[in-house]
């Protein structure tokens, strides 16, 4: 099956699910479908089939296809994909993506299960990149302010984790962020990157929330 701009949407969907085709050809079909899906109204008749094909593709043995499908679905906040990502974080043996990437795709997902797994990773994961992404996920969890403030202030924590916690804390509790950040900015012995990040974020914070009120 030839996959190109002239292919019908039905043919592209068929190619996407055709495991006898090379992965590169199926990825070509996926890119063409993604471009067509951008035209929301014109694609409406195919959207349900497209979503179903993507969900099927998340279990494909080809890693690139599986990751591409999960990424697109997660961009659409698809609950099936979000559930797969959470399951992978809870049980790495069934994970389809590395933990840091799964966490990135779950940013903005306000479900309690996502916040719970992010808290667990922030507390227990060895990899700073994973902990940083967990801190980013908590940017929509207003109950995480105290936890994030503690991470921001912890000079023993990796800089990238503290920076991520600072961004999330500023997002959910400006005054708490300002209270945590001002001592860091004033402490010349603290990590330069954390200090610079704190200074940048304080500049973005309105004065009535304890920020500088002016972008530097």
């Amino acid at each position: 099956m030839m996959v190109d701009d002239a292919s019908t949407t039905e043919d592209l969907l068929a190619a996407l699910g055709d495991t006898t085709l090379a992965a590169s050809e199926r990825l070509d079909a996926l890119e063409l479908l993604q471009a067509r899906a951008f035209e929301t109204a014109a694609f409406a008749a195919h959207r349900a089939d497209y979503v179903q094909a993507l969900r099927t593709l998340t279990g494909d043995p080809d890693d690139d296809l599986s990751e591409a499908a999960l990424t697109i679905l997660a961009d659409h906040e698809d609950p099936f994909a979000q559930n797969l990502l959470i399951q992978g974080l809870q049980n790495p043996s069934v994970a389809r993506l590395p933990a840091f990437l799964a966490l990135q795709l779950l940013r903005g997902d306000g479900h309690a299960a996502t916040a719970a797994v992010a808290r667990d990773i922030l507390a227990n994961a060895a990899d700073p990149e994973e902990r940083a992404e967990a801190a980013h996920v908590l940017a929509t969890d207003p109950t995480a302010a105290a936890l994030l403030a503690a991470v921001v202030a912890d000079t023993a924590e990796a800089a990238e984790v503290r920076e991520a916690a600072a961004m999330s804390l500023r997002n959910i509790d400006g005054p708490a962020f300002a209270a945590a950040a001002r001592p860091i900015v004033a402490d010349e012995t603290d990590n330069w990157r954390v200090r610079t990040t704190s200074k940048t974020l304080l500049a973005l914070l309105p004065a009535d929330q304890g920020g500088d009120g002016e972008v530097g």
Binding site: E31, D64, T71, L101, L105, G108, R170, T196, L201
Partner: peptide, 29 residues
């Protein structure tokens, strides 16, 4: 990664949206 990366002194750092922070942007393939 799914998010763009910014320098620590870039004012776009921690870009706030209604879905959290950061700019979700990753070039395809």
């Amino acid at each position: 990664g799914a998010y763009a990366v910014f320098a620590a002194d870039n004012p776009l750092l921690g870009w706030a949206t209604d879905t959290g922070t950061g700019i979700r942007r990753r070039a395809r393939r």
